[in-house]
């Protein structure tokens, strides 16, 4: 995690309304430093800003067909730093989409719905709990 106590979150979606609504929810419910990006290209260009977690739309090239899609963006993020947890978002609840996301090393897959924010929040908390536990475990192991 970054040196500050805030979790640095990248939100990537070409739907500005969903993007804005997620930003509002996260800012109201937790201590997050949020950066929003409407394209995968912009997200990748800003990875140097060291996000702690990325929430990424699966369909980034629905309308702009030349744009980088969600999976391509995910691959580039993982190539930059495999340790960044990426949660994929899609408005379609399809098993093929979920499986594809897992194959490309996404942490999880969330369907855009009324409960999406709460599920994202829970996943982020779990990811950081796991990170903390792993760190503690390493500390104990190093002293054995």
């Amino acid at each position: 995690m970054s040196s500050t106590s805030k979790i640095k979150l990248f939100l990537v979606d070409d739907d500005p309304i969903f993007l804005k609504s997620l930003e509002i929810e996260f800012l109201q419910h937790g201590d997050f430093a949020i950066e929003t990006y409407p394209t995968g290209e912009l997200c990748v260009q800003n990875l140097e800003n060291q996000p702690d977690v990325i929430i990424l739309d699966f369909h980034l090239n629905g309308i702009e067909q030349d744009a980088m899609n969600g999976l391509e963006t995910l691959d580039k993020i993982k190539a930059f730093n495999e340790g960044i947890p990426v949660i994929m978002l899609s408005s379609q609840d399809k098993i093929e989409v979920a499986v594809e996301c897992m194959h490309h090393k996404a942490l999880d897959y969330v369907v855009k719905s009324e409960t999406a924010f709460f599920r994202l929040q829970k996943m982020i908390n779990s990811a950081f709990e796991m990170k903390k536990m792993a760190k503690e475990l390493n500390w104990y192991v190093s002293r054995m």
């Binding site: 739907d15 309304i17 369909h59 629905g62 309308i63 408005s91 379609q92 855009k112």
Partner: peptide, 14 residues
């Protein structure tokens, strides 16, 4: 299809 797909999530928000 792609356009409608993009418009669906905001329906719930609104």
């Amino acid at each position: 299809k792609a356009t409608i797909h993009k418009m669906i999530p905001s329906l719930n928000i609104m």
